[in-house]
Design a protein around this nucleic acid. Structure first.
Length: 115
DNA sequence: GTGCTGACACAGG
DNA sequence: ACCTGTGCCAGCA
């Protein structure tokens, strides 16, 4: 079939494929672990940190969004409080439990890229 | 086509 | 710890 669409035009309320992939990865992050926006993009081999951020902003509410954070360990803007509650519940390694909340990326990053 | 905006990343100050 | 500038990619007016 000839479908020369340059844009992935999706029906309202439906997820673009990229978004679906992102959410799938997020869902695979185990408790007590996190990935950065850039990590997710790199893991998928497509898009970039900003695209992942957009997906999380629009559809992240249905997954474990607190496990996707900035590269420096700070959680999503506007959700620091809720994120901290989750980190304490999951026993996620923290460098600071006081604002600014910061996850210990060295220990919490997943997958454990190297050793 | 052009320009602004955004749940980013990185280097400087 | 905070702000600024630059690079990056995509959505939207």
């Amino acid at each position: 079939m000839t479908a020369p669409r340059s844009s992935p035009r999706v029906a309202p309320g439906e997820l673009p494929e990229f978004a679906s992939l992102v959410l799938d990865v997020v869902d695979s992050i185990p408790p007590g672990r996190v990935m950065s926006y850039g990590d997710v993009a790199e893991y998928l081999g497509q898009g970039g940190p900003r695209q992942v951020g957009r997906v999380m902003s629009q559809w992240g509410g249905g997954v474990t969004w607190w496990r996707v954070i900035h590269s420096d360990g700070t959680p999503a803007p506007g959700h620091e409080r809720a994120a901290l509650a989750q980190y304490q519940r999951e026993n996620t390694p923290l460098r600071s439990a006081r604002s600014p909340v910061r996850v210990d990326m060295r220990r919490a990053r997943w997958p454990d890229a190297a050793g």
